[in-house]
């Protein structure tokens, strides 16, 4: 039984999570000014347009910052996972996403390290985008 926090998709974010389930990393793109944005939101923060489309991106990026969680909170949920890495990743297409770096020694993570998305189907309905070094 998966016991970690799960995203509850809403009107703005549902396409993103559907994309992950289908193995595609999607970012929102403003129809009016073409600015890309993530996390998804109804109004473009640049031009306030509500018209947007979803674009599949390469899934390639670099590590902007990262942490190594060593003390699990809650302990009964993450006790088996520590140490684990959470990173802010700058995608090649110019938006930033938070995720885990997996398949990597936590002490080997470095700034600007190149990473690639991989999809982790954690439940029947939720797939999380995670990243591994390339």
């Amino acid at each position: 039984m998966y016991n970690k926090p799960l995203p509850v998709p809403d009107a703005d974010t549902e396409p993103f999570w559907t994309g992950c389930r289908e193995g595609r990393l999607l970012v929102q793109c403003c129809t009016a000014c073409e600015a890309k944005r993530l996390p998804p939101e109804r109004f473009c923060p640049h031009c306030h347009s509500v018209d947007s489309s979803w674009q599949a991106v390469s899934g390639r990026g670099t590590v902007y910052s990262w942490i190594v969680v060593r003390h699990p909170v809650p302990g009964d949920v993450y006790g088996g996972d520590v140490p684990y890495v959470v990173a802010l990743i700058d995608l090649a297409e110019g938006v930033r996403i938070a995720s885990n770096i997996i398949d990597c020694d936590p002490d080997a993570v470095a700034a600007d390290m190149a990473v690639q998305v991989t999809f982790d189907p954690v439940t029947e309905t939720v797939t999380l985008p995670k990243f591994r070094p390339v």
Partner: peptide
């Protein structure tokens, strides 16, 4: 249950 902005943070611990 991760609602709102935490959809993009909490699921990653």
């Amino acid at each position: 249950q991760a609602h709102g902005i935490t959809q993009f943070t909490a699921p990653f611990g």
